[in-house]
Write a protein that binds this DNA or RNA. Structure first.
Lengths: 115, 115
DNA sequence: CCGCCACATATCGTCTGACGACATATGGCG
DNA sequence: CGCCATATGTCGTCAGACGATATGTGGCGG
C-alpha cells in the first residue's frame, strides 16, 4: 500500500539522529557499518538510505554531536569512523526522553501499544 | 534546546494521520475539536498547528479515509464533521501496526524504552 | 587478467509536509 | 463596541528522505 510506504518514509524523519547517536554510543563506527546495523538490528523494519545517511552524519558532526576520523588500513578502503562527543551524549539522552514521552503521548491519543 | 524543537517537529511528520484517524474513529469530529483533543490527551506533549491540521484533513478526505459533512447549528459557526470511512478503518489498523513495529525496531536499535 | 560484486563515501534534484503568519467569520461577555 | 474563543482556510519557507548517479577499492570466479 502506497500509504504505508509514505508513512514509513515519514517515520524515518527525526529518528535518524537517534539511531546514529545510539549506535556510535557503543563504539566508533563508520557510515556503512551504521547503515548495516540499522538494517540488521531492526530486522529490516527500518531502512536508511545512504543518500540520507551521509548528509545526516555531516550535520551531526557540524553540530558537534559526533566526531569523525579517517582510518586507513591495508586491504580496506579508507573509512571515516565517528564517535560520540560529550555534547552528543547529552543530546542522545535528551532525544531518548523526547521519543519516550512522544510514544506515551501517542499511545494516550491513538492507542498504539499492543497491536 | 533547538535540537529538541526540531526533533519534535519531525516526530509530527507521519503521526498526524494516525492521530486524526484514531480520533475520528470514536465518533465524527470537526477540525478544531481534533486539535484540542490532540493537545489535551497528549498533555501538551503533541501540539498540532492548524496550518498543518486542515491540509491534512483535506488529504485524508481526498484519499477517502475520512468523510466530511458541514453541520450548521444556531449559535455556533458552521463546522465540518469528519467520520472514518471503511477504507479509513483499514488504513488506521495498518498504521497502528506500522507504528508499533517501528517502536519495537527503534527500541532494538537505540534502546529507547525506560529512559 | 578482466568483469562483477560488496564495500565505502559522496552529491544532486525532487517531493512532501510542518509551521509561522496571516485572513475571515461568528457568538458571548464585559 | 472591543476582545476573546471558536472555527476554517491559505501562502511561503524550510528541512530532510530518497532515487539516481558517481567514484574508487578489494576479492573472487571464470
Amino acid at each position: 500500500m502506497a500509504t504505508t510506504k509514505l508513512l514509513e518514509r515519514e517515520l524515518k524523519r527525526g529518528s535518524a539522529e537517534l539511531l546514529i547517536l545510539a549506535l556510535v554510543e557503543e563504539r566508533a563506527r563508520h557510515g556503512y557499518e551504521i547503515a548495516q546495523l540499522i538494517d540488521s538490528r531492526s530486522d529490516g523494519g527500518i531502512r536508511y538510505h545512504v543518500a540520507s545517511l551521509y548528509p545526516t552524519l555531516y550535520r551531526l558532526e557540524d553540530r558537534g554531536l559526533i566526531e569523525g576520523r579517517w582510518v586507513e588500513q591495508a586491504g580496506v578502503r579508507r573509512r571515516r569512523y565517528y564517535k560520540l562527543t560529550k555534547e552528543g551524549r547529552k543530546v542522545l539522552k535528551s532525544q531518548r526522553n523526547v521519543w519516550e514521552s512522544f510514544f506515551a503521548a501517542l499511545d494516550r491519543v491513538a492507542r498504539v501499544r499492543h497491536a
